[in-house]
Each structure stands twice: as C-alpha cells, then as structure tokens.
Design a protein around this nucleic acid. Structure first.
Length: 354
DNA sequence: AATGCGGGGTA
DNA sequence: TACCCAGCATT
C-alpha cells in the first residue's frame, strides 16, 4: 500500500478551503497552529481572521499590550497560548528582526512551540520532512495499522512519531502532513467514520478486524474537581471592583470580580457569615442580594465550577478593596478587560447601566 | 511520567 | 452524558 500517495490523492480532492492554506508566511502559519492546538478549526477560524486583521505582521502583535492580546483571545481557552504567543512575537520581532526560524530544531525552541507545532511550521513553510503527530494522526495511524499502544504513553508517543516519520512523503511533507490531519478530521472521525468510502478500507487493520470503535487506545481520563465560586459584584453608582487573576492556575492574567471560594454551595444566610466574606465586607454594605438563585454550572476539561454572583450595594467601597489587587473601574469600561467566558456571560446578562 | 490548562461541538 | 479537538509547559 502506498499510504502517503492514497492520502495525498484524497486530500487534493477533499480538502477544505482555509485562509492559512493560501500562504506559506511563517507568521500566519505559526498563528494558525497555535490557535488550533486542542481547538477545532471551526472554533479557531474567526479568531484567526480577527488576529490577522488586527495584527497583520509579527511586529504589530509584538507592539500590542498583553491585555489587548488576551482580550482578542477571550473565549478561545488555554490562555497560556496567548501569553506565549505574545512573548514569542516580541522575541521574533525584537531579537530576530521579524524573521521566524526556518528549521524544526530552531522553531521548537520558541515558547509555546512543541513537537507538533515545530513540525507543522517546518514542513508547511520550509518543506522540511518532519511528521506531525496530533490527535488526528493518532487516530488514523492506530486504525489503519492496527496499533493498540496507548497513544499518550511514553512508548506510544515514540512509536507513532516513528511511524509517521516513516510514512511521510519526503518530496511533499507539507501536503502529507496536512492531508493526514484533514483526513482524520473529516473522514476518519472519532465516531461514525466513513469506512464505506475509505481509500484505505482494504488495508485498514481496524476495519478488517472490526476494531474501529476501539482504536485509538487512550489511557487516562482526567478527573473533574468540583469547586464553588462566589463572585462579589460590588456596586457603587456606576462603579465596580475587579481584580486580575495571578499565579499559575486557570485564567491567569484574566480579570474577574472579587472571588471567594467555598467548600460547598452557600445559601444567602451562609454567605454573610463566611469568614472571607466578612473580612472583605465588614459591615460596610447597604444590601446584598443573590443574582442567580441556582448556581451556574461552568464545566471545564478538568473542573466543574458551581458559581454564584452576589450583588453588593455599597455607599463606599469597603477598606479591604483599597488593596493593590483590586481595581476600581467604571462599569461602562468593563468590556475592555479580558475575562473568562463565565464572567463575560454574567456581564451580558446583568445590565450594568440600568 | 503525570498533571494542569478552556471552551465548544458532537453523538 | 462522555468524548475530543491541527498540544504545551511544568513538575
């Protein structure tokens, strides 16, 4: 079986028309690849269009503030990608005079660029025969070649990478890499793949052995932790208080309302007696009422958040909020801050201007 | 070698 | 629901 030829033939007649397929400019390819890490094309596409519109060159991206980059990234998730993107843009613009590295080895040194992304850029932009291995590749190869090694085990990572390197068309690595990913995304799908019209049907181990639904083998399921979030939405005329998240946890550098975590769901009576809440508010408020009676369930890949927004009307902001961590802002300006989708949805629902 | 990190589409 | 998406950094 000529695997790469069948694959590229399929690709030439089935590929989608996508904006980053019209260029080999490494800046645009890099941008698209970072955005598409663990992200579907349909979800990333509008962000790609906005970023290329707003930042036509790596210099434009480098000169922007991190806050602006995060704001434009808002809703795409995995925000470390945006911070690394900005860091690398500054590095390329300032240290490399705007010229991206042109080999796999050098590309991989860039922050936010791992094995997959370095391979993608090197092959697409510079014709280097290095094979990409993403979720699509694991699925296609495990099925066609009947490989039951767990894909994210140390052994699996090496085995699939080696096989991909063996299969790549060294004359057209760009077409091969994009072909196998496109084939996985459109044809050899996780559920209900189109085996009936598959060019590999005769050669596909999984199909021949009826193992399509068992491959690829994955090991671990990430356990989802439940947490209880209480946001304090302080209201003083048209002013409120926000804070920027610090540390290494979720939503780093994004903004939110002052947050109190609790170990369980808080009823209205519990809220005012919670030690952290008492510490923040003292007695310095007029009225507290709960915005959402039922907790909002916000599910992330590794976490389930049960969230309540508490509206706190004050004459003056309590002393605790004069700390550096907090910023007093006009509610009219709240839309300019990068926030998690959870907060954005609240802002949309709660009309600050009324 | 294992874990943390978002949000949304799909069946 | 559960799964998975053009993965990477950190420990």
């Amino acid at each position: 079986m000529n695997f790469s030829k069948l694959l590229i033939d399929w690709y030439l007649s089935n590929q989608r028309e996508l904006p980053w397929r019209k260029t080999k400019n490494p800046y645009y390819i890099w941008l698209s690849e970072i955005m598409l890490q663990q992200t579907r094309v349909a979800q990333g596409l509008p962000y790609y269009l906005r970023f290329t519109e707003e930042f036509p060159t790596v210099f434009d991206l480098a000169e922007a503030s991190e806050e602006k980059v995060l704001k434009l990234w808002q809703g795409l998730g995995y925000y470390s990608r945006a911070r690394n993107l900005h860091f690398t843009a500054k590095y390329v613009a300032e240290e490399l005079k705007g010229e991206f590295p042109n080999t796999y080895k050098e590309l991989k040194k860039l922050k936010g660029v791992g094995d997959y992304t370095a391979s993608a850029i090197a092959s697409i932009c510079f014709n280097e025969p290095v094979a990409v291995v993403d979720g699509n590749v694991y699925r296609v190869l495990s099925r066609v070649f009947g490989i039951d090694t767990p894909i994210h085990s140390t052994e699996g990572i090496k085995e699939f990478k080696a096989l991909a390197e063996k299969l790549i068309d060294k004359e057209q690595p760009s077409a091969y890499n994009q072909a196998i990913m496109e084939f996985g995304a459109l044809h050899c799908k996780p559920k209900n793949p189109y085996c009936i019209s598959c060019p590999f049907q005769q050669n596909c181990e999984a199909f021949q052995q009826g193992k399509i639904n068992e491959l690829p083998i994955k090991l671990k399921k990430t356990k989802v932790l439940t947490k209880y979030f209480n946001y304090l939405v302080l209201l003083k005329g048209d002013q409120t208080i926000i804070q920027q998240r610090k540390g290494n946890g979720i939503w780093r550098n994004l903004y939110q309302f002052p947050l109190v975590e609790s170990d369980k769901n808080l009823a209205e009576a519990d809220f005012l007696t919670h030690p952290e809440v008492k510490k923040l508010l003292q007695e310095d408020f007029k009225k507290v009422n709960l915005f959402n009676k039922k907790s909002i369930k916000h599910v992330l890949s590794h976490r389930k958040l049960m969230v309540k927004f508490w509206l706190v009307q004050v004459e003056e902001f309590p002393e605790a909020f004069s700390h550096n961590d907090f910023e007093t802002i006009s509610t009219a300006d709240i839309h300019s801050y990068p926030v998690p989708v959870l907060i954005e949805k609240f802002i949309e629902n709660f009309n600050f201007t009324k």
